[in-house]
Design a protein around this nucleic acid. Structure first.
Lengths: 223, 223
DNA sequence: TCACCCAAAAATATCGATTTTACTTACAAA
DNA sequence: TTTGTAAGTAAAATCGATATTTTTGGGTGA
């Protein structure tokens, strides 16, 4: 990729992936020296990457004491989801209002791609396509501030999805939901698109919510 | 301050101030070596600070080519303001719904402090108090994601205010507007608080909008 | 005059080593 | 026991130097 030219950006992307995937456990310490060795680079690029990640909430920095993977909690996930629903509803309405033909075509293309990929067999590609699809929906929103914020929340939500580790994905046809949202967007029905998107997130959210609560329970029992 | 213990955080705050105040001109290059000397420290803390700032949109990073102060434009300010109005309206409604006595007391206290300070004679203190006041209004919003985002947008807006350099501040009594918002919030009238807050920002926004447009005109004439 | 290429200069990116800070353990005094 | 203190250890923070990359400026040929 173009953005992996410098060691700093390689470190950024790799550490980011480790946090999002749950490979680095929530609440656990992130040691610079250890990363430095496993990534085979000096401390500077690692520190820079961690600094950047910490202002994206993907890493928590404690002055003079190092870096940590953020804690997770049902409470936090509730806030995250709730914020996302409301902000992204605004973003998609804006996008529907301002989208041009290129915006439409990209949505169509990505929806097709998403349908072509098997979620479990081609997990990496599916993840990337899913993110691209949701980005494409709101990409025509004139405020890049809003779009960037939505994608930041998207990433944090994906982390919760990975950490909740659902035994199996729900049976409801997610691709149908995607199609509904895309159709509403392309039909320039902003309200409907927003409503369906919110519903889509809320359903996924509640499913994960249950997974998380079970884990919490299991942990408490173990103690 | 507590947060200035490390060189990195000193660098962060100082560079941030330089960008927000307009001391570093929009679009101009930010040279590491120059900063390193003027701040009297090594390159590492400076780079870390710049990395952090770049993911807060206060600095633009161009891979392998260094760092720059973000460009400004009327278009961008429009987006920024518009985003802010809508997101902060949500935040203050939430805060009004969830605020506790400590939240109320802090608003009262900060409004008093703000009124006691002269905007031109005690500019630094006024700025800090103004930021604290606006933060206090939304601080009871349960989603720290939303609150943090609002404050990020607040800072970007302050940058525009500093860059627009209004010859004189408008005559309208800003403290009255603040009081109106605070009263509505304390009376638990979320809708009214949101409406007044939006109005407050929009008025300031349009005022700055004019200043910026004039500057644009002046620049074009000079060329 | 203009476009193009190459060498010198400047600036960024990175590393390895040093310094500083925070945490832990051990021990002594109350 | 509890409290306080001091030495030792581990990790982060920082620095100075080196390696890479980009930019600049001048010269050449069409």
């Amino acid at each position: 990729m173009d953005s992996h030219r410098s060691l700093t950006s390689r470190a950024y992307h790799q550490i980011r992936e480790m946090v999002l995937s749950g490979e680095i456990q929530p609440g656990s310490r992130i040691q610079i020296d250890q990363l430095r060795k496993s990534l085979d680079m000096g401390a500077s690029p690692v520190r820079e990457a961690l600094s950047t990640l910490s202002s994206e909430q993907l890493v928590v920095r404690s002055e003079q004491r190092g870096f940590w993977a953020p804690d997770v909690s049902v409470e936090d996930f509730k806030n995250l989801l709730d914020t996302r629903l409301r902000v992204e509803a605004i973003a998609i309405s804006d996008a529907v209002e301002h989208g041009d033909p290129a915006w439409e075509e990209r949505i169509v293309m990505l929806q097709y791609r998403l349908n072509s990929l098997d979620r479990t067999e081609k997990a990496i590609e599916w993840e990337a396509a899913h993110r691209d699809f949701h980005h494409a929906l709101i990409a025509a929103c004139p405020s890049h501030y809003l779009v960037d914020f939505c994608m930041q929340l998207y990433d944090l939500a994906v982390r919760y999805r990975n950490i909740a580790r659902p035994a199996a994905y729900p049976k409801r046809k997610i691709s149908n939901e995607h199609q509904g949202i895309a159709e509403a967007a392309l039909a320039r029905d902003g309200d409907r698109a927003a409503r369906l998107l919110v519903e889509h997130y809320r359903k996924t959210g509640e499913f994960l919510f249950d997974c998380l609560s079970e884990q919490d329970g299991a942990i408490k029992e173990a103690v």
